[in-house]
Design a protein around this nucleic acid. Structure first.
Lengths: 249, 249
DNA sequence: CGCAGAATTGATACATCTCAAGCTGGGTGG
DNA sequence: CCACCCAGCTTGAGATGTATCAATTCTGCG
């Protein structure tokens, strides 16, 4: 099992952790990290695997180390809405709550750094640095959710697609450092259907709008997933956002 | 000015405060409250007044004491989306951020308990009870925002209206104690246009769907704002929610 | 009384959904 | 190595829900 191999190869020290400086542990001092290190454990999931079902008892919280996961809500008749996209360093679970409120699914192969909830909560109570960082991250998520509310409530299908693409592009560029103008290249981490669930559209509409953006020269496609953005500002324009600064985070 | 009268009449001790047990100060001990008391001040706003404009420098945070305020986002071309409804005890502002991210508007006459940001942040750092409570409240808001994402992305106009009505009704009933079955009565705190901005609809569609719910006997109207719900379960049914339990908060 | 803001109602337009058919590319088994 | 298969995707045609534009009607108030 490749999984076991991954698990061991990833059971690293926090000091080497790729999300060390962004995750919930970002502000911890060496001694605090040492305590976290004692209660942490890694888990791997394969692409497509459901990590948690909404309503399930959940006795751990976790940070995404590598890979991408989604948070979705489903109505009785099957309508689905994605309510969060979890990237490396994002936090999963809610201290003080027994059951999961959403389905959590691994979109790609995924590694999470888990903490059993009880010990984590105890540590939170005694370690302000963790609670502080979690508050900061939660406030950021709340802002992101509210930006998404504007998208879902008021944007057109084309604007929704352009917004999603520019968010993904920005993140990729962010990792690759600096506000790169000129052409940007990235891979979509989501299927058309997942994009539709995120944007409150049908997968057909997603497909059509991507084709339209391609026809209009805003993006280029290589295969189904590989996107080339020749002019990032032009894409942002299509998203309908205030394109002032935008470097708050 | 009635405002000055309100200000003085409301400059009460925290111990008598109507939101004492729900607001950001809920967990504070007597000595902590005493410190808060020294840095707090009340402000009143009239219905319709804008409290903060998005992008403005914001040098205070606050709790809503009485009245209702809204958080809205506006696109360049005027499309508006409400991203939050602030009720008594809700918190306004974000520690650690310089400028407001949304427009904040008083929907009714409003009284807020304000703290200058700097002293509040200092207190937060030294008073875990405040940070803990703020984290809890922020997580609740995040859940609410995500529920709203499902509404905005996937619900029909009729379901949106029914959802909003049942949320408002539930809150009113909540204040009036216990899960009252039988008929529920309340006043809409929002105009049709505000409802539309909250629900991602036009005001005409809001009006039509309210009329439709009335015609179908799900609600009754007295005037434009006074709503009678003869059978609350029937209303919840129309909202399309999983109507299991639902008593998590 | 009459005005103004709020709400309702009607007729039509249009964006997106729905249903349906076909395409594409990578993996698999014969 | 080829043929097939299938999930993911694209494209088309028509249906439908909501927006848009436009008249009224209500309601409270100066």
């Amino acid at each position: 099992m490749a999984i076991h191999h991954d698990l061991t190869s990833l059971a690293h020290e926090c000091a080497d952790c790729p999300i060390r400086h962004r995750a919930v542990c970002a502000r911890c001092e060496a001694d605090e990290l040492a305590r976290l290190e004692q209660i942490k454990y890694y888990r791997s999931y394969q692409a497509g695997q459901t990590i948690i079902w909404s309503g399930d008892r959940m006795d751990f919280v976790a940070s995404v180390v590598t890979g991408i996961a989604t948070l979705t809500q489903t109505m009785e008749d099957g309508r689905r809405q994605m309510v969060g996209l979890l990237l490396p360093s994002d936090f999963v679970g809610r201290p003080g709550r027994l059951t999961a409120a959403y389905d959590v699914t691994a979109t790609t192969d995924l590694v999470m750094c888990c903490f059993r909830k009880k010990p984590f909560e105890e540590m939170m109570a005694s370690t302000p640095h963790i609670a502080q960082r979690l508050l900061e991250m939660t406030l950021d998520e709340l802002d992101a959710a509210r930006e998404w509310m504007l998208l879902l409530g008021r944007k057109t299908a084309r604007e929704k697609i352009a917004s999603l693409l520019s968010i993904i592009a920005r993140r990729d560029v962010g990792l690759k450092k600096g506000p790169a103008q000129g052409s940007i290249v990235f891979d979509l981490p989501l299927t058309r259907e997942e994009m539709a669930d995120y944007l409150g559209l049908t997968l057909e509409t997603v497909s059509r709008q991507i084709s339209a953006l391609k026809k209009d020269g805003v993006i280029e496609l290589e295969g189904k997933r590989h996107i080339i953005v020749p002019n990032f500002d032009a894409l942002v324009e299509q998203a309908g956002d205030d394109n002032d600064g935008g470097f708050l985070v």
